[in-house]
C-alpha cells in the first residue's frame, strides 16, 4: 500500500507541470504594459517670398511710339505659404503712400486657394489670395508697372507686405 502513495507525488507534479505548460501554450502572452503619448500641433502660419527685392525698369522695348502708356512686368518671384488653420487669405499692401507710377500685383497659378483679381497697390491691404486655409502652396507674383510718358522719368521704391489673415 505504501508504493502507490509514494508514486503519487511524481504523478501530481507531472500533472501540475503539464497543466502549467499547456496553459502557457494556450495563452502565449507573457505580459503587456502601456503609456500615453500625446501629439500636439501648434497653430502654424508661414509666409515668405523667395526673392527679397525686385527691380522693374521700363526700357525701350516697353515703349510703343505714339502711345503715352509704358508698361513692364516681372514674374520672377514666388510667394510661399503654409497654414494649418482654416479660413485664411493673403492680403497685400505697399508702404508707399504716393507713388509716382502705378504698380499692380497679381497671384499667378496658385497651387492652392484662389487668386484674387489683379490689384493696384496702395497702403490699404487688398486681397491677393483667397481660401488658403489648411494648406501649403506657392504662386508666382506678377508685378506690372504702368508709367505715362507724360509723367517723365523717376523711380518708386515700394516695400510690399503680404499678410496671412482671417478670411
Amino acid at each position: 500500500m505504501k508504493r502507490p502513495a509514494r508514486l503519487l507525488f511524481p504523478v501530481l507534479l507531472s500533472v501540475y507541470v503539464l497543466a502549467a505548460s499547456s496553459e502557457s501554450v494556450q495563452a502565449q502572452t507573457y505580459g503587456s504594459d502601456f503609456h500615453r503619448v500625446t501629439v500636439t500641433v501648434a497653430t502654424i502660419t508661414l509666409l515668405q517670398t523667395n526673392i527679397g527685392s525686385i527691380n522693374l525698369s521700363i526700357t525701350g522695348s516697353s515703349v510703343i511710339a505714339g502711345q503715352d502708356l509704358m508698361t513692364v512686368s516681372d514674374q520672377s518671384s514666388t510667394l510661399l505659404w503654409g497654414t494649418n488653420s482654416s479660413g485664411k487669405k493673403v492680403t497685400v499692401r505697399t508702404n508707399l503712400a504716393a507713388p509716382k507710377y502705378s504698380l499692380k500685383v497679381a497671384a499667378i497659378n496658385p497651387t492652392s486657394g484662389t487668386a484674387a483679381s489683379e490689384v493696384t497697390l496702395s497702403t490699404t491691404s487688398t486681397d491677393f489670395l483667397l481660401n488658403i486655409g489648411r494648406s501649403s502652396g506657392s504662386c508666382a507674383i506678377r508685378y506690372t508697372a504702368l508709367a505715362l510718358a507724360s509723367q517723365g522719368t523717376g523711380s518708386d521704391v515700394h516695400t510690399i507686405t503680404f499678410t496671412i489673415t482671417n478670411q
Partner: peptide
Amino acid sequence: TASATFAQGNSAEFGNDVHTVTYTILA
C-alpha cells in the same frame, strides 16, 4: 516620431491626439 501636414490642421481646432500605446510580449 510625430508629424502632421498643414491640411491636417492644428490642436486648437481639432484637439490633441492622445494615444494609449500598448506593448505586449508573447511567444
